[in-house]
Design a protein around this nucleic acid. Structure first.
Lengths: 211, 211
DNA sequence: GTCTATACTACGATAGAC
DNA sequence: GTCTATCGTAGTATAGAC
């Protein structure tokens, strides 16, 4: 399938060079086809970019759906909520450190910094669902029904994970390793998990002070 | 000064559009000069980009120097170290949320994702110093002389702050506000400070378990 | 030092052959 | 459906006038 090949290569190119940096000529050449097939299949560079965003949203949403789908059950216990939070964050750590979906993460990171129409699709497609779920889980896990506090906490929780990709170059420099090997990843993942517990416990302690 | 004007505008352009996305023609036009003056003053687009990186490193290093310079005193107490960690992170929160230095942060973020020669200058110039200082402070504040643990912790601490810029679009969506206003910033800053304490306390508790 | 003029390359879009 | 050919635009670099 020419479409499939184009899309695959386009995602990698857009991720590493950005919308402006990537060229339709190179993408088409790498896919072994003519540049005009991009016009035919996707209506142009812009269309190809949006198709890439949709593809990414669908793919990443798929691998998270088993953790998120169906919403949060009614009678979920704080302990269960905390377990699920850990599972979601661990899954994200994997995505942010793994070499497999490097392009997906980078593509999304770029959209964060300078959002285009593609961002709406990604956020509406799966990112938003995951974040709202996380915020809800934080509320259950901490017994704090203040939605604002939960959302702020989610931002900081996610931040720890996202940095692994967004600030990759700095992380590697600071940790003095050429690449994130298995031991580095497990050290980071373990620390993030421990921090998450510490943060959630803190939120619980604050709640008890409030009352 | 034409150089100064060119540099200023170049930083904004490179930050918002990236190295490939920005055009020397637009930059020169915005600076009210001819494009060829970029060649004359900076040797070309590449040179202008590197000059922008140097300028950013110098500027950001300057505003942090009073917190960092002179290294960490010999007999610093854990409490003093913790206070200094809070001060550095608060200063970073300001930089990441403020509209003033948006371009600087974005420029650095881009370099993180796809490092070029400019990254070495920024990391070598001030970023590295700040991070090593933070790691050292974490060691003192927690009484853990394990450098690796401290560095991993610093990555997560910084991550919370960096996300405010790197994932700006998502943060705004999740918090349902069109812009980071004063109250949102103080909520985020307060949470980050609380988290930092929780994380440091956790590191201390772990140390006591180890022994 | 600064600007004008120009050369050259590469981009994206499109029309038309097959 | 896919490719070739071509158009118009925009990019950087450079030479030379002032």
């Amino acid at each position: 399938m020419v479409q499939q090949r184009l899309l695959e290569i386009a995602i990698a190119e857009f991720a590493s060079k950005g919308l402006e940096g990537a060229s339709t000529r190179s993408i088409a050449a790498a896919a072994g086809t003519a540049m005009s097939s991009i016009t035919y299949h996707f209506g142009g560079k812009e269309g190809l970019y949006l198709a890439a965003a949709d593809h990414i949203a669908a793919q990443m949403g798929g691998t998270l759906s088993h953790l998120i789908d169906g919403g949060v059950p009614e009678g979920m216990t704080p302990a269960a909520a905390r377990t699920l939070i850990h599972a979601i964050l661990a899954s994200l750590v994997e995505k942010m450190t793994g070499q497999k979906n490097t392009s997906y993460s980078l593509f999304i990171m770029r959209e964060q910094m300078e959002p285009t129409a593609a961002f709406e699709r990604i956020y509406g497609g799966m990112l938003g669902t995951m974040l709202r779920t996380l915020a809800h889980l934080v509320q259950i896990a901490t017994g704090r029904d203040d939605g604002d506090t939960a959302r702020v906490a989610v931002v900081t929780l996610i931040g720890q994970v996202v940095t692994l990709r967004a600030s990759r170059a700095t992380v590697l420099k600071l940790m003095q390793c050429p690449d994130l090997d298995a031991s580095a990843i497990s050290a980071l993942g373990g620390r993030i998990a421990a921090n998450t517990d510490a943060i959630l416990d803190r939120l619980i302690a604050e709640r008890q002070e409030l009352s």
